Simulated scan of single mutants.
Amino acid sequence: MNDKHINPLLKTALEMGPIVIFFAAYLLLKDRVFNIAGRDYDGFIVVTAGFIPLLVASTLVLWKLTGKLSRMQIATVVLVVVFGGLSVWLNDERFFKMKPTMIYLLFAGILGFGLFRGQSYLRTVMDDVMPLAHEGWMILTRRIALFFFGLAVANEVVWRTMSTEAWVYFKTFGLTAALFVFFMAQGSLLKTYGEAED
C-alpha cells in the first residue's frame, strides 16, 4: 500500500488527541468514585477504561488515512490495551502506570540488541526522515537507547514514590518535554553526520 499524505495538524491531533483527552478527563473525574456492577472504581480507572478504545480508534483512523503505522505506534497500542486492560479488569491503577516503563524498556532493548549486532535499527525506520552517515546513526541510536532506559527508570521512580496526580502530570508533560529537549539537543550530531539527499 502506498503511503498517503494527510494534513500535519490532523496527524498531530490523532496522535496527541487521546493523551490530551485523557489528561482533561482525569482532571475532571480524579476525585470521583463510580459504582459499576456493584464495584467501586475511582476516576483514574474510569478514565483509563475510556482511553483504551479512544487510542485504538485514533490509531486505526491514522492507519486508514496514511496507509501505515510505525512499529512504535503499534507497540504502544498493544501495551496500552494489555496494561490498561489489566488496570481496569483488576481495578488496580499500577498496571497502567507501568505501561510507559514497559514501552521504553522494549525500545531500549530492541535498539540495544541492534547495537550489539553492529546495526542501527533506528535507521531502518527513520532513514527516509533523517539521512545520516552510518557512524551518526550508531551514535544517535546509542544515545536514544540510553535515553529510553533513563525514561523507564524515571517513570518507575515517579509512580512508585509520588501521587497518581503527580504521575499524570509527569506522563503528560514531563515525558513529552524530555523527548523534545533530547531531540533538540541532537542538533550538532545531525549537522555533523547529516547527508544531503540526492
Rank of each mutant, 00 (worst) to 15 (best):
N7E: 05
A25M: 08
F107S: 06
A49M: 10
V56T: 04
F95R: 04
I21C: 14
Q186R: 08
K171P: 08
R71M: 14
V81E: 12
M184G: 15
G84T: 02
R123Y: 07
L132Q: 01
G194T: 12
N35E: 09
L90V: 09
E15V: 12
L189G: 13
L106M: 12
M16Q: 08
V80P: 03
N155D: 14
E93I: 11
P18A: 11
G150N: 07
A185P: 01
E195I: 15
R117S: 10
A133N: 00
E93F: 08
L60F: 07
V46A: 13
F44V: 04
Y169D: 09
N2A: 13
N155W: 11
Y121I: 01
A185M: 15
A196D: 10
T76P: 02
L106D: 06
F95N: 05
P53C: 02
G43W: 12
F149N: 10
L86M: 10
M16P: 00
E135L: 06
T164F: 09
L151I: 15
D127M: 04
P53K: 00
F95V: 00
R32L: 09
S70L: 03
E195F: 09
N91V: 06
P8E: 11
A24T: 13
S70T: 15
E165T: 13
G85H: 01
D3N: 04
L179A: 15
I74P: 06
E165N: 09
G84M: 01
T66K: 14
Y121H: 12
I21M: 11
S70G: 08
K97I: 01
P8D: 07
V33D: 12
A178N: 13
M162W: 04
V78Q: 05
F44A: 08
F83Q: 05
V125W: 13
R143E: 13
Y104C: 00
S70R: 11
S163R: 03
L9W: 13
W89A: 15
L14V: 05
W89N: 03
Q73E: 12
M162K: 07
L140V: 09
D42P: 07
I139V: 11
S188T: 15
G118P: 00
D40P: 00
R160L: 08
I19K: 02
F113H: 08
